[in-house]
């Protein structure tokens, strides 16, 4: 098997995640889809690392994870406070930024 398949898989997962972001309205699920996209990227990075025979790709994937962790912490805090004020986790309810 050609290891390029890992990249195809990553692309597929990324696209699925992105579509999920567009389709789902529950903020938590939406957020999970973002995580899926990040993971797809990580997979691609790891495959690149193997491809080029150095560890920089893995290091970047590592940083991605750290940043994703920070993002999840803040994002979930936002969702919780949003739910507290609006009693809803739907992103469509937070549509004040329109005319």
């Amino acid at each position: 098997m050609n290891p390029v398949n890992y990249l195809y898989l990553a692309a597929l997962l990324f696209t699925i995640g992105a579509s999920g972001v567009l389709i789902r309205r529950n903020a938590i699920v939406l957020f999970m889809c973002v995580e899926l996209m990040l993971n797809a990227c990580n997979l691609a990075l790891v495959a690149f690392s193997r491809m080029h025979g150095n560890l920089d790709g893995q290091i970047i994937a590592f940083f991605t994870m750290v940043v994703a962790a920070a993002e999840v912490v803040v994002g979930l805090a936002i969702i919780v406070s949003l739910f507290r004020t609006r009693h809803s986790a739907s992103v469509d309810d937070a549509s004040l930024m329109k005319l």
Binding site: A18, V21, L22, V91
Partner: peptide
Amino acid sequence: RKLQNGYARSYAVSMF
């Protein structure tokens, strides 16, 4: 103006 509907998901579609 109609593009500015306030829904984050619409904006996400544009970005995507």
